[in-house]
């Protein structure tokens, strides 16, 4: 396959953002790696110039060995029908800050709120970073790689130890059933 449409669009992107790395993953899917300070400009251009009205999702990946968070912005166009994933890297700290794109897309507020809860990334410019799903949460953000789920779950919710007496009880119950 020669990915004609995809390569044409990449040419458009390259004419403005010269330093970015663009790859065609497969048909109708482009991946772009760009420096974090140019993301807002890129998103603005996607929305205003390149006919991308839809922000599908924002996701976050924790690269603990490289000490970085990766934010992935997925854009979708109804006319071009090409999904663009823009990837940026930010340093991995206790409270890393990054700019919000909620002024361009209102729904971005929810994605950013979710990432703030699960990874602890603070989005400047988003006025609503309250607790989202884990309303009673205390402790460090649970989706970080250095958060040990097993330890937390034992500490907060306990663990039921197996008791062989239960099996005897159940077996007795089963035997009485067989007689009936």
């Amino acid at each position: 396959m020669d990915y004609e449409r995809e390569n044409e669009f990449i040419k458009d992107i390259k004419s403005v953002f010269k330093e970015v790395v663009c790859t065609v993953k497969r048909e109708r899917r482009i991946e772009i790696e760009l420096p974090s300070e140019r993301l807002f400009e890129f998103a603005t251009r996607m929305q205003k110039n390149w006919d991308y009205p839809h922000l599908s999702a924002i996701s976050c990946v924790d690269w603990i060995k490289e000490n970085q968070f990766e934010l992935v912005y997925h854009f979708w166009s109804y006319n071009k029908k090409i999904l663009v994933s823009a990837k940026i890297r930010i340093p991995r700290e206790d409270e890393p800050h990054f700019e919000s794109i909620s002024s361009l897309w209102q729904p971005a507020k929810f994605f950013e709120r979710d990432i703030h809860e699960m990874f602890g990334v603070v989005f400047d410019g988003n006025d609503d970073l309250e607790k989202f799903i884990l309303t009673e949460w205390k402790g460090s953000p649970p989706m970080r790689k250095d958060f040990i789920t097993r330890k937390y779950s034992i500490e907060f919710y306990g663990e039921r130890k197996y008791n062989p007496e239960w099996m005897k009880e159940l077996k007795k119950l089963g035997d009485s059933n067989d007689k009936n």
């Binding site: 884990l134 937390y152 779950s153 039921r160």
Partner: peptide, 19 residues
Amino acid sequence: TINGGMYWNSYATIKQLDN
């Protein structure tokens, strides 16, 4: 509800209802 079941390792679900 008895011991967490398949959520034995979860950070968000309780594991022993009788507590």
